[in-house]
Design a protein around this nucleic acid. Structure first.
Lengths: 352, 352
DNA sequence: CTGTTAGCGCTTTCAA
DNA sequence: TTGAAAGCGCTAACAG
């Protein structure tokens, strides 16, 4: 029953092609293709025969060849916040790379930087991106204006993938990023266990109250602290706008106002400003921060930061691109591969 | 200068094909192909012209089409240890999947289980696999016999990729897995910080002294403990053969011999046996173990295990397949994407 | 040293 | 409802 079309390569297994399926079912290539791709216009009895052949031969369609023949090509836009945040810069690079290496289908991805913390601007950017693209990737802002823009665009059939910071109420096709509440809980566990029994006061540092991801982290942190380390309470919540200089100023103020805490959870960017302010007053509380960047790396090595909670920007970018392509081509994604993990970095498991 | 071969799709960018390059350089498709793939037999001045065209047009070869035209197909064997270790079972599944989804080229991967802890058997399996395969993936055993077998096979031109446990002295093409010394150091940090100041005695649980990965973990653990938590010393090293029942027996013996420790680092599998033995004697030291499986999951949730150090079997399998394919086809790999991370799991960041 | 030609496995007109 | 044929972008003989 096995058709050795290459009799001179005895050990290679027979891999059936669509042509083999067609032959076996005694139909043309075109008909076999119609059945395999569930296209209409085939008699039920013929479908039956072809499907039988697929089963018997164990046919699996060659994704690469299909992509080539389809000769599709897509245009998409990625919207990232402007600013000094090094994690965002890294993400932009990785998105570029991921789009180029897309392999099977062609993706032309333009990356646009918009004003973060500014719902109006982001909403506007989303609407305008929809004019020039078939798909959108965006770092979200949880705001009614943004939600409305995403919904309007989605209505048009243009898939929107939220990245890193979700817009949960919107009709975004998919959120690619970590579970930020869980990240906050992890931070609480680390802070609680590292700080030890005597600790009573923790500070939380946020980029902004407008960022869904930071708020979620705060929620998770508060929740886990309350349940597992009730002696530790959140003595202050500080806004640093993801910027080192502004963070330093804000921290200075709080420190001189209510004194040194036992622990600090920096849920946004700008950790070097935090560390500078702490050093200035000679304190060394337990510090847990987010993301591995040129800013945080030396601080972890030196011990100024005790642990880092990170998400892999390379993985996130590849995942966003895969998910968007799947939406664009009607393909499937494997939830498991697209789940972004929360990683914990100690000086001992720093990459490289 | 832009050639709109599809004048009706105005917004799509022009993506040059090899044909465009050939036209631009005024050579045939075949010659352009030779230059782009660095094949010999082209005059220097022609190479120059083609490379110029590649630069000007921004040509990038379409990997999918190339793979299709090459019509290559490979046969490979993966050698995994027999036994009850659930992590290995998971890895086998993921390898299957990764081979099927390889997409661009075809890979026929057979998975063979051999006797672990048995250098003779593994060496023999490697030699015999070389007879029926063009490439080999194997979970290593750091032993002269295995090294010799790998070297002999590599000599034949058959690439061997070591997975999870390396055979560093051999001519394996690549090692896919975590840095196990770093994992040991991470374990030491967690154990040291979680156990607190009063702690003095730690036990280490190994699958076997023959496993390079377990030994490396022990090394890293010992090293970091010595440097950062000198008060904590390794009071016992126990062998459990990666099996719950044997681990329980061994632990029982040690516990009745020298009593309860402040912390246990389980560097191999079989953690449920460890927990059972500890419970039996009413102790609850800090426990750090490896891998997220059906065995360890409930233990982490219940608090019997404090932290898990894990490697992602899905990522490892995909990486091993990619690396092997690259070796087989002479392709390139991106070191960065292939680095396997050490992840730390607390109850708070359990996936799902 | 260079060009021509026939595919790879699949999708897509267009015609029957 | 079905089939024939052209072609996606690239590679691999085989000629010249």
């Amino acid at each position: 029953m096995v058709d050795h079309s290459h009799p001179f390569v005895p050990t290679l297994p027979f891999v059936p092609t669509l042509r083999d399926v067609a032959r076996h079912a005694e139909v043309s290539l075109a008909t076999a293709d119609r059945v395999v791709n569930r296209r209409p216009g085939v008699r039920a009895s013929t479908i039956e025969r072809v499907e039988e052949a697929v089963r018997v031969l164990g046919f699996e369609r060659h994704a690469g060849a299909a992509a080539l023949a389809r000769r599709e090509s897509f245009r998409a836009v990625a919207l990232l916040p402007r600013g000094t945040n090094p994690f965002i810069a890294r993400l932009a690079d990785e998105l570029h790379l991921a789009a180029r290496l897309q392999g099977l289908r062609r993706l032309d991805l333009s990356i646009l930087r918009t004003d973060s913390f500014e719902p109006t601007r982001l909403a506007e950017a989303i609407r305008s991106a929809a004019g020039q693209a078939q798909g959108i990737i965006a770092i979200g802002l949880d705001d009614p204006l943004v939600t409305a823009a995403i919904d309007a665009v989605a209505e048009t059939g243009i898939p929107v993938v939220s990245l890193v910071s979700d817009v949960p109420a919107s009709r975004r096709r998919h959120y690619v990023g970590i579970d930020n509440r869980a990240a906050g809980r992890v931070a609480a566990s680390l802070v609680g266990r590292f700080a030890g029994r005597g600790a009573t006061r923790a500070f939380v540092l946020l980029g902004s109250h407008a960022l869904r991801d930071h708020l979620d982290r705060l929620d998770g942190f508060r929740d886990a602290l309350g349940r597992r380390f009730p002696a530790l309470e959140i003595a202050a919540i500080v806004e640093g706008h993801d910027d080192a200089a502004r963070t330093e100023t804000a921290m200075r103020e709080v420190l001189s106002g209510i004194g040194m805490p036992d622990a600090v959870y920096s849920a946004g960017a700008g950790a070097s400003g935090l560390v500078a302010a702490l050093r200035e007053r000679g304190g060394s509380p337990v510090v847990v921060a987010h993301e591995l960047t040129d800013e945080t790396h030396p601080l972890l090595v030196s011990g100024a930061i005790d642990a880092l909670i990170v998400q892999d920007p390379g993985h996130e970018a590849r995942s966003a691109v895969r998910v968007l392509m799947a939406a664009l081509t009607g393909g499937a994604i494997s939830e498991d591969q697209e789940r972004i993990r929360i990683e914990i970095l100690l000086p001992d498991n720093l990459p490289k």
